[in-house]
Simulated assay, not measured.
Amino acid sequence: MTRPASPTVTITAGAVVGDGAPASQTLDRGLRALELVAAAAEPMMTADVARTLGLHRSITYRMLRTLENRRLVDRDASGAWLPGAGLAVLATNVVPEVRSAAQPVLEALANDTAMTAFLVIRDHDEAVTVSVVEPRSAIAHVTYRPGKRHPVQRGAPGLALLAGATTGGDDGQPERPEVTQCRERGWAYSESEVLPGMKSVASPVLDDDGRCRAAVAVVFVGDHGLAALGARVVAAAAEVTHRARLMSRSLPTGPA
């Protein structure tokens, strides 16, 4: 199994009310700690979390213990912090029909390509991984975790989300040529934009109205035929779109 090197993680200020400070500074700090641990490529020690957030170590430890009590973070044998199982529970109702539709598709994609496959959604200016499937029989593959976040303007998943959502610049920013290329051919490619040395190919998942709901992606190392891989990821995204449409049409629309 290939474990990627830890990327530089940037934590931005928490949500604010109007133009003022966060409504709850304690909650804001706790959420920032949770975001940091969830986005890290490797488990983080308390001192590393405290240093990144600019907080005292004892304050950071108490916040992390509180998150641990809620099963939102966990600790490995060395005492380092990593995402907890409670995050999966919180994510259950995030685009549920798309996640359900994507699961078997991601499994087939991961095993066909011997790469880690994942589903990404957009959260404002970030791309967030909500589902991950690792290949069963690959000799080596990249480890990736749900909850990982990165700027939507970087990485193949983010580029695919932008390509599916817009026909021009996003939020007033000039559009990257890679976004336009993804819109034309159906898939995006990036290298070392999110994790050093890692490559990714992604394609947008659309709904009946043509809106981008998510993106299907694979992450890998080494050399692969990008055209064939891109076509395989595009086919997977199209299958997720089809399955999600069938699932949404089968849902009850009102009382009997």
Rank of each mutant, 00 (worst) to 15 (best):
I59D: 04
E191Y: 07
R243S: 05
A238V: 06
L162T: 09
F118A: 10
L64I: 00
D125L: 09
V142T: 05
D209Q: 14
R136F: 01
A163Q: 01
A236Y: 01
S192D: 05
G222Y: 02
E193A: 07
T166P: 01
E134Y: 05
G172H: 06
R211I: 10
Q153P: 02
V133K: 09
L82N: 04
V16K: 10
G222M: 02
G225Y: 00
G164V: 04
T166L: 11
S100W: 08
G20I: 10
G79R: 06
R245H: 12
D74W: 05
A156L: 07
I11L: 13
D208I: 04
R149P: 06
R32K: 05
L206A: 12
L159C: 13
T52M: 07
A117G: 04
A138D: 04
T66Q: 03
D74F: 05
T241N: 11
R176E: 15
Y61M: 14
V17I: 12
A138W: 12
R176T: 06
A237N: 01
V37W: 03
A156G: 07
M198T: 10
G168D: 06
P204V: 10
V218C: 15
R51E: 15
G225M: 06
L36I: 01
G147P: 00
G14H: 11
G147T: 03
P252C: 08
G30E: 10
Q25F: 04
I121S: 09
V240I: 02
R70H: 13
P7E: 15
D74S: 11
V201G: 02
G14D: 14
G30H: 01
P157H: 02
G172P: 01
D208G: 04
R122W: 09
R176D: 15
R183G: 12
V37M: 04
S192W: 03
I59F: 00
V221N: 12
A91K: 07
P22I: 09
A102Q: 06
W187C: 03
T129D: 02
V201R: 05
T116F: 05
R245M: 10
V194H: 07
D48F: 11
L36Q: 02
G186W: 10
E68Y: 12
A117N: 05
G18F: 14
A235P: 00
F118E: 11
S78D: 14
M44Y: 09
N69Q: 15
R232D: 13
T12H: 15
V9G: 00
V98C: 01
L109F: 01
V16I: 15
P43G: 15
E42S: 15
T253I: 11
C212V: 06
A138R: 08
G147H: 01
A156N: 02
I11F: 03
L246A: 12
T241A: 14
R32I: 03
T2V: 14
T92I: 10
T143W: 06
T52S: 09
G186A: 07
V128A: 06
P7H: 13
Q181T: 07
M247S: 12
E239K: 11
A110N: 07
A114H: 12
V142P: 00
E178N: 10
I11E: 07
L251Q: 14
D125K: 09
D207P: 01
A228C: 09
V132P: 04
V142E: 08
D112E: 14
F118Q: 09
E68P: 02
A117Y: 03
N111A: 12
V98H: 03
D74E: 13
L72C: 10
R154V: 12
V95T: 13
V89T: 14
I121Y: 06
P43A: 15
P255H: 11
R3A: 10
L159I: 14
G222R: 00
